[in-house]
């Protein structure tokens, strides 16, 4: 099954050799900064940097293209709604009275006639598009370049209790089994003559939801078995155990940690006191 593991990059780069902790910090810092910024050019720069980094460390272009394709209808809606309708908000944010029109739809068009797309609204939409891109693509950059084993040890070293880290990795282990079971259950339902395509929405929801019942109950029964397995493998949930995988912070890791901390503080300071990162319209 394709979704069994994280998509891992094949290329060995300095990035795959990094410890998980600087990457965790990177994901947090970039997410917060992208979240705070509203400047379309700065968001775009950040997003492009992330995409380039993704490609450099070996995330396949095909993957990034899929993300862009899936998101594109959403982006078009964002651009249209902000371009046409986001008038008052943009005026307030920019402190101006009049927006610069980009183009207008002829008055005689049905329903949408007379609408005006503004440059400011358009750029506000651009800002949001790159913001969501940053938030989304920073995850493959951090996760696809890390082996699960290193993630777990990295989590434990970042003082996340081993118990939680273990839940994290075991969930990943058991998920494919459950996913397979969902297929079996849906098949079993179809074989009871349930043709979903012929039902109204409420009935369909009622019948379809029933898929989850044997799934959850089956999982709960298995979990008691799993508990017995864990016990007999001397699992106590205690973080005080040995680990075959190591997590060592090398100088490069430290450099990155320092870099992202400084970047975080500086960008917040610039934003709060100097307004750098606030929304503006280049046109």
């Amino acid at each position: 099954m394709a979704m069994m593991k994280f998509q891992t990059v094949e290329r060995d780069s300095f990035f795959t050799k990094l410890d998980f902790r600087p990457k965790l910090l990177m994901m947090t810092v970039i997410s917060i900064v992208a979240f705070v910024w509203e400047n379309p050019i700065m968001e775009a720069t950040l997003a492009i940097l992330i995409i380039v980094s993704c490609l450099l460390v070996g995330v396949r272009w095909g993957y990034i293209r899929t993300v862009l394709l899936i998101m594109s209808p959403f982006y078009v809606i964002l651009l249209l709604t902000h371009g046409f309708f986001n008038v008052d908000q943009v005026k307030t944010v920019l402190g101006i009275q009049q927006l610069k029109p980009m183009f207008a739809i002829p008055k005689n068009w049905w329903l949408i006639g007379g609408g005006t797309m503004s440059w400011e609204g358009f750029f506000y939409g651009i800002n949001i598009i790159f913001k969501t891109l940053c938030l989304t693509l920073i995850i493959p950059l951090g996760i696809f370049t890390t082996e699960v084993d290193n993630m777990i040890v990295g989590m434990v070293r970042s003082r996340i209790p081993y118990k939680i880290a273990f839940i994290f990795s075991s969930t990943l282990r058991f998920f494919p089994l459950l996913f397979q079971e969902i297929q079996n259950i849906i098949e079993a339902q179809r074989l009871r003559g349930l043709a979903m395509e012929k039902m109204g929405p409420v009935k369909r929801v009622r019948v379809y939801s029933k898929v989850a019942i044997p799934l959850i109950l089956g999982a709960m029964v298995k979990s008691q078995q799993l508990e017995v397995v864990l016990q007999s493998k001397a699992f106590s949930g205690d973080s005080d155990r040995t680990y075959i995988h190591q997590s060592i912070l090398r100088w490069l890791d430290w450099v990155l940690i320092v870099f992202f901390l400084v970047f975080f503080v500086v960008s917040l300071v610039l934003y709060i006191w100097f307004g750098i990162g606030r929304f503006f319209s280049p046109v």
Binding site: I167, S170, I216, M220, S223, Q224, L226, E227
Partner: peptide, 11 residues
């Protein structure tokens, strides 16, 4: 039990 948390997370 940890196992319950694991399987429900997997669900």
């Amino acid at each position: 039990p940890v196992a319950y948390v694991i399987v429900l997370a997997a669900v």
